[in-house]
Amino acid sequence: MNWTTHAGPPSVHALGLAAAGTALLCAAAILPLDAPPLSLLACPFRSATGWPCLTCGCTHAFAAFVRLRPLTALEANPLGAALALLCAVHSVWTALRLFGLRLAPASFSATPRIRAAAAALLLANWAFVALHGPR
């Protein structure tokens, strides 16, 4: 199976997603977690039920990832750590494509099995956050 395919320069959406990903990583690197605006982010779901939502801990995961603490990022929220890694890989790859790399990730069709696996992973992540995260 080929993981890459030959492609031209990045599309406008590849550039937009890379810009958004880079902005998120920069914000995670610059903004302190214990001061506004990040300290103002309160999960309404957790406040109402006492249980974390699917994305609770993602801010901490991004902050730990950009400070090169992958285990802390995984502990905070595995989904958040994976998203931070995805943002970094996509941003670097898009920058390389801008400078002449002619390879892009190969697209794949989301079969029902892949979709079910992705949904199961999301739920597993949620269970992990609920069991492991702070109450």
Partner: peptide
């Protein structure tokens, strides 16, 4: 706004893919 637009589109697209 640009970051929000792309994050919103990415989350919506993820669920579009998950739901076929």
């Amino acid at each position: 706004v640009l970051v929000t637009l792309y994050v919103n589109a990415a989350v919506t697209h993820l669920f579009a893919v998950l739901l076929g």
